[in-house]
């Protein structure tokens, strides 16, 4: 994550735009049946490889814990401070105590309550943005790759163009034109993210397009949309999932950077990144509880998603099993 357009593309994303390059991608071993029928057997293999990576298993635990903490937690840990409409000015910047396990912030919000709220926002934005970016990018890439020719050229130039405009610029200008809101941030993060899956899937599609079974479906009169939806996308599912995992991690990082630059979710909402960047302003007061918990949450979740992504990538790289 170099958040703002400096993002190091994932491996696949940077492969040159030339036909045939998709062959270099670590993809799902394509079964001869073509209609992704072999996924069941493959699933066991994938799980075996995945579970070899113990840290990835721990990471799943961490993510589940965080999801429970952020989304279920507020039902059990109810403080007036977690209700973020009413600030408690009587107790600002209070250090941790039995009443406030991680102290309070300058507005008197309970830090634990805020971590739940901020985490829910961060995770929702990251998951939604990654989801939207992946779905849109996959279809964009698959259509571009499958159609080929002029359509492909135009679609890929669109990708190049958007890739060439710094994300931050898009963000600042769009934030000025539209009302800042939760969905706007989801949209912006997704806008920055869809290009990678689009290029990725296009490469994959270019390869798959030449495979015998696709040729066969075509010969039998199968339509383009059916081929894309039933053959190409299912066969690229490994690549898609791996990429989506990294997208989530990167979205959390981008969100933190946006918070630092003053483009976070509008108050009274917050996200972990905004909590961290706000908390740093109070470092001089020794308010460690405003800095470390949010920082640790960001790092834990991002690292976990990366581990999962890495393990998934290994798992989908089935050729490795031939050792």
């Amino acid at each position: 994550m170099i958040p703002l357009t400096g993002d190091l593309p994932d491996k696949e994303a940077i492969l040159p735009d030339v036909p045939g390059m998709g062959a270099e991608l670590p993809g799902v071993e394509v079964t001869e049946a073509g209609e992704a029928g072999g996924i069941g057997g493959l699933g066991r293999v994938i799980w075996r490889v995945f579970s070899e990576n113990k840290l990835a298993l721990v990471s799943i635990g961490v993510i589940v814990f965080m999801l429970l903490f952020c989304f279920v937690g507020p039902h059990f840990y109810v403080t007036p401070q977690a209700n973020f409409v009413v600030t408690s000015v009587g107790q600002v910047l209070a250090p941790p105590s039995s009443q406030h396990l991680l102290g309070t912030d300058p507005n008197g919000y309970d830090t634990v309550g805020r971590l739940m709220v901020g985490g829910a926002t961060a995770l929702e934005i990251a998951l939604l943005a990654a989801g939207i970016a992946t779905i849109f990018g996959v279809f964009f890439g698959a259509i571009s790759g499958y159609a080929g020719g002029a359509v492909d050229a135009v679609m890929m130039r669109i990708v190049d163009t958007v890739l060439s405009v710094p994300t931050l610029f898009l963000l600042i200008v769009i934030a000025a034109i539209l009302h800042t809101s939760f969905w706007l941030i989801v949209f912006i993060v997704a806008l920055a993210a869809w290009l990678v899956p689009a290029r990725l899937i296009r490469g994959e599609t270019l390869t798959l397009r030449t495979r015998e079974y696709v040729q066969a479906v075509r010969a039998m009169g199968g339509g383009g949309s059916r081929i894309v939806a039933r053959h190409i996308i299912p066969n690229a599912v490994g690549t898609i999932i791996v990429n989506a995992t990294f997208q989530i991690a990167d979205a959390i990082g981008l969100l933190a950077a946006l918070g630092f630059l003053g483009f976070g979710v509008p108050a009274p909402g917050t996200s972990w990144g905004q909590m961290l960047s706000d908390g740093i302003s109070y470092a001089q007061e020794g308010a460690w509880w405003l800095i470390y918990p949010a920082g640790i949450c960001i790092i834990l979740v991002t690292v976990s998603f990366n581990y999962i992504g890495d393990a998934l990538r290994d798992a989908f790289e089935v050729r490795l099993q031939r050792r």
């Binding site: 409409v85 009413v86 600030t87 507005n107 003053g262 108050a267 009274p268 706000d278 302003s281």
Partner: peptide, 13 residues
């Protein structure tokens, strides 16, 4: 602006 953000939160509340 951190201090100002906090003021505005307090205002809304």
């Amino acid at each position: 602006v951190t201090a100002f953000d906090n003021q505005i939160r307090e205002l809304a509340s």
